[in-house]
Simulated assay, not measured.
Amino acid sequence: MKSIFIIYGLFFSFQSLAQMDQFHAGKVIENHGKIAEVEGMDPLPPGAQFNVSFDVSKAAVPGEINRSIDSVARFINMHDAAGVAAEQINLAMVVHGGSVRDMTVNNAYRKNNEADNANVALIMALQKQGVDFYVCGQSAAYYGVKTEDLIPGVKMALSAMTAHALLQQKGYTLNPF
């Protein structure tokens, strides 16, 4: 009986790995945000405009990329591949909870982790594409993160709630993922 479960587990593990082969690097954020081609999808309307905010509260495993930040790269890469012009994509990420540490420079990050912050290069690449990052000031205070600890260009907000409310007033929708 035990061997049946092992065989069953191996089968689905191999099947999962085979499906990962469908994903490839995008052309905008080349080292992050892998995408897959989607056959038979409904075409995007011409001139589609995306003003989207993302929310992240869960910190990455120390020394690893935060999956939620990588999702922003995937959003950019897949819409670029679908023909959406860069100027039609306006993205923001609101960061709170333990993930505020993922927004810090290596010196500050190492105070709480035994690794460099693997997110720095990705955040900087996303900023070059116009993505705005807002750190919840309330979470930052709780975790001892100061403005000078933040990666250059990352903004300190009064709170995550405030940042989301202001982004919504600017026409941003909240991505539920």
Rank of each mutant, 00 (worst) to 15 (best):
Q19F: 13
I4D: 13
A82V: 02
Q127A: 05
Q15K: 09
G26K: 01
L126S: 03
M78Y: 07
T104C: 11
S13H: 02
D42A: 15
G63M: 03
P45Q: 12
H79C: 05
E148A: 11
Q19W: 09
E30F: 01
T104L: 02
F11P: 02
E87W: 01
A157H: 08
L167M: 07
L150F: 05
K155Y: 00
A86N: 05
A125N: 08
I123G: 10
E39P: 02
S99K: 10
G63Y: 03
H164V: 00
G26L: 01
I151A: 07
S3P: 00
F5S: 12
Y109M: 10
G153Y: 03
Y8L: 15
N51K: 15
I65S: 01
K34Q: 14
L17S: 09
A36S: 11
L167C: 05
H24Y: 06
V135L: 04
A118L: 06
E37C: 01
E114Q: 15
I4V: 14
L174Q: 09
N119A: 00
L17Y: 08
S159N: 07
Y172D: 12
V105I: 15
M78G: 02
K128M: 04
A48G: 08
A115H: 07
A118R: 04
A86Q: 13
V120Q: 09
V94T: 05
N175S: 05
A115C: 01
A25N: 15
K146M: 12
G26F: 00
V135Y: 01
D132T: 09
N107Y: 07
F23Y: 14
G47L: 03
A59M: 12
P43Y: 02
Q19C: 08
A165S: 15
E39V: 07
R110P: 01
E39N: 07
L174H: 05
K34D: 09
G171L: 10
N66T: 01
A118G: 11
I65P: 01
N113I: 00
K27S: 13
L167A: 08
L166I: 06
D21S: 09
E39D: 09
V100N: 05
G98Q: 12
H79I: 06
A85C: 04
V154K: 03
D116C: 02
E64D: 10
S139G: 11
Y143V: 12
S71Q: 12
E37P: 01
P176H: 06
S139A: 15
I123P: 10
R101Y: 07
V28P: 04
V135K: 01
K27F: 01
L122K: 05
S57M: 05
K27A: 12
G40N: 12
D55K: 06
L167G: 06
I89V: 14
N117A: 04
E30H: 10
N107I: 11
D42R: 12
A163V: 10
K34L: 12
S71H: 06
M124D: 12
Q88Y: 00
V105N: 15
I7G: 09
F14M: 13
K111T: 15
G144F: 05
L174E: 04
A118H: 04
G98R: 07
F54N: 07
M161R: 11
V61W: 00
A165M: 14
E114V: 06
A140R: 02
S3Y: 08
S3W: 08
P45V: 10
E87T: 09
N66W: 01
Q22R: 15
L44D: 12
